[in-house]
Design a protein around this nucleic acid. Structure first.
Lengths: 206, 206
DNA sequence: TCATATTATGAATACTTGTTCATTTTAAGG
DNA sequence: CCTTAAAATGAACAAGTATTCATAATATGA
């Protein structure tokens, strides 16, 4: 077998693997880990059950691969935005403004992650640290807000609660819109978060 | 059989039923619907499996009873607070300040509800409208904030997003603290939400 | 104490679903 | 065309668990 053919075979194998992961993500994020059978994943991705087991040694491993692989993408995309050398206010602004893209690209995985790993994480033992979306994001946001307070840009609120507050409303919107709304609606919702979060609720003079 | 004895039997039966529901809530909220077996519920509540089926025709029905019964309690407690005849600002304030009690009494059910019904609600067909915690709460909060804006108490933010924002940070805290933190810690966290949410993040003059 | 009705029991059953593996299909190279 | 290795297949198997039901325990009233 020539070198080129080996490469093609390798590519095809990866392609098939990815196909399975994609369909699994679709199903898991819609119905939850326990409500999707290997049969269903096989049918949907047009392979036989046995084939799935040529790629993944168990259903749990398949799930963990999904989370680890995609989770790291989400985290690195978050970080890329939040590490840009701009002011703390700009940083949060850009973060919120990128949310429609994040939702489009990663809505399903974020939903799945929050539902399965966030709540019953103990069940899955091989989730890599690098893909722990929530923890990493909250730490980073806390740091940014904390800096902003020190510089007198933000009010002296509790940075950790402010970070959690931001990440939880963003997650809620991702939850509610993924697989249901068009991008325009989504963009509009995040725009409103921007106004709410960066301007505050109460009028200064009451 | 005398009248009184019938009443006692009836009371005992209800007592047993409640016992089962209590232990089921404990288990479900810790491990999730699918990760708890009827055997486990039976052992924990010190009845035989068969006895559970004298009270509930199926595992699903048991779960739905739990959600319906307790869900309505949660909703009515929320409403009692939010319907008091005080200003919009006071209303939200009292709501947030009651959260430690809510968490103590209803943390488990709120967690369970969000995890199972909120995300895969389609699986359970008999959840009563009256117990749809999220929907009802968000509508009420939206209304209050909307009123507050009209009266010039609040900034002109989007009321629906503001409502979602508040409810989601409160839910997040309930998630993170239930079964893990003492009441003092919990009270402290909600205090910080109060400051953040009612005073706003950005300084008026920057 | 006995007869009866109600409630509790848990071994047995039925069904779902994750996993395996002997067999078939595919395709590259001679 | 034949050989061979890699990949795909899906029927069969294994394990777990929801549910049933014949039997036992319990309590009531005569």
């Amino acid at each position: 077998m020539t070198e080129k053919q080996l490469q093609r075979k390798e590519r095809e194998r990866l392609q098939h693997r990815q196909e399975i992961l994609n369909h699994a993500l679709d199903l898991f994020s819609k119905y939850g880990f326990n409500n999707v059978s290997m049969q269903q994943i096989a049918e949907t991705s047009e392979f036989a059950v046995g084939t799935l087991y040529n790629f993944f040694t168990s259903k749990e491993i398949l799930f963990e691969e999904l989370i680890n692989r995609t989770g790291e993408h989400v985290v690195s995309e978050f970080m890329e935005i939040l590490n840009r050398p701009v002011s703390e206010k700009e940083s949060l602004l850009e973060f919120i403004r990128h949310m429609p893209n994040i939702q489009e690209k990663f809505g399903k995985i974020i939903k799945l992650y929050a539902t399965e790993v966030g709540t019953f994480g103990s069940k899955f033992s091989n989730i890599r640290e690098k893909s722990k979306i929530h923890e990493i994001l909250d730490i980073k946001l806390t740091h940014i807000i904390s800096q902003g307070i020190q510089k007198g840009i933000f009010r002296a609120v509790d940075p950790e609660i402010a970070a959690k507050s931001l990440s939880s409303i963003l997650e809620t919107i991702i939850f509610e819109t993924t697989g249901r709304c068009n991008k325009e609606t989504v963009t509009d919702m995040f725009k409103k978060v921007e106004q709410l979060f960066l301007e505050g609720l109460l009028l200064p003079k009451e």
